[in-house]
Write a protein that binds this DNA or RNA. Structure first.
Lengths: 184, 184
DNA sequence: AGCTACATGTAACGAGTTACATGATTAT
DNA sequence: ATAATCATGTAACTCGTTACATGTAGCT
């Protein structure tokens, strides 16, 4: 039942640090968690429902005035046990499915400018993401030499996000340079 | 019908260069295509079936002796039209879902050595992938200055694969160094 | 008057994974 | 003997996306 289901494990790992509502989890997933796990709001709500049924998390409804009630989830002892069991198993690298590169393979079907424009657009997106992650890094970890073990781990995921996005910017520049030589 | 379905487009793009059987496509997907699109044998067969029904590709059965017959697929005019329509649309960056980083977030639950061992294992995997891609690059593109437009495009996907895998090796080394300082 | 943020969900569908099925040839 | 390679497929299941549904508060 818990052989794959990595979204479930990501939620458990996040709830391991702090309790969240579905909505708050989704916002967190849209910011810092984004650099290692992406999930939609709907996916998160569905997974929270499953996890609660299985007893890995428990919820408490917080009534609010003028706003819909909140359901705050916390991880249970059973949830922690599930996480620990999963931690010792090896994990495969993420599968790569990158549309832009498929388009590069088919690029010859259309004028050079079409793919070049798309690569330039993507370069901007990744550039902005680098800036966003760097800002989070500075805010959360201003002094790298004084981090606890837990903070170091969180810091490393952000470092990975920055490396990943920077690599894309570099590749885009290489591609733009190589393909711009053409007078097609 | 063709708004997403990026595996279909990847197959169409691959068949744009050369005709392949399902089995040959799968082998190609396990080697060079792997650096931008991963798919299992079963997925490829299913997608080929769909694409043929829709008229985007056509097949020819090649009888073989001592071996099962081969079904060779080629792209049709309609398939090329579908590819061209898709090429001009913008594409979003791939969603990131990396189990190793989730494990890093939850790493504090177990002794330091558990996550360190896993990161070292992953470092080796990515290292080997860098070597594999570099070898393909040297074989297919020994002289970068003399590439056709089409070859440049293919070359760039491999360059992206090398950059991606190298970045992982670098990150693993950073993580090992930072987390080894602990005497936990 | 219309947009964004807050807050939680259901339903349908498309994409990806795993297991099962068949059967000959070649290499160790 | 047994494993790997060649070659194609079906079926069941889980995961991810998109559309739909509901309703208040605050901002411009």
């Amino acid at each position: 039942m818990f052989n794959e289901m990595a979204l479930a494990h990501t939620i458990l790992a996040t709830l391991g640090d702090e309790s969240y509502s579905g909505y708050d989890l989704w916002k967190k997933f849209s910011q810092s968690t984004k650099c290692y796990w992406q999930a939609s709001q709907q996916q998160i709500y569905r997974e929270l429902g499953k996890l609660e049924k299985q007893g890995a998390i428990a919820s408490e409804v917080i009534p609010q005035e003028g706003r819909p009630d909140k359901k705050i989830y916390r991880i249970t002892e059973q949830g922690i046990a599930i996480l620990k069991d999963w931690l010792v198993e090896p994990s495969e690298p993420m599968a790569i499915r990158e549309e832009l590169l498929v388009k590069v393979i088919a690029a010859k079907l259309l004028p050079n400018s079409v793919i070049l424009q798309e690569i330039k657009r993507r370069s901007q997106i990744h550039s902005q993401q680098v800036s966003a992650y760097k800002q989070i890094l500075q805010e959360k970890f201003p002094d790298v030499d004084k981090l606890s073990y837990e903070q170091k781990c969180s810091y490393l995921t952000l470092r990975c996000g920055i490396r990943y996005e920077s690599t894309w910017v570099d590749w885009c520049n290489e591609a733009i340079e190589l393909l711009s030589e053409e007078e097609k």
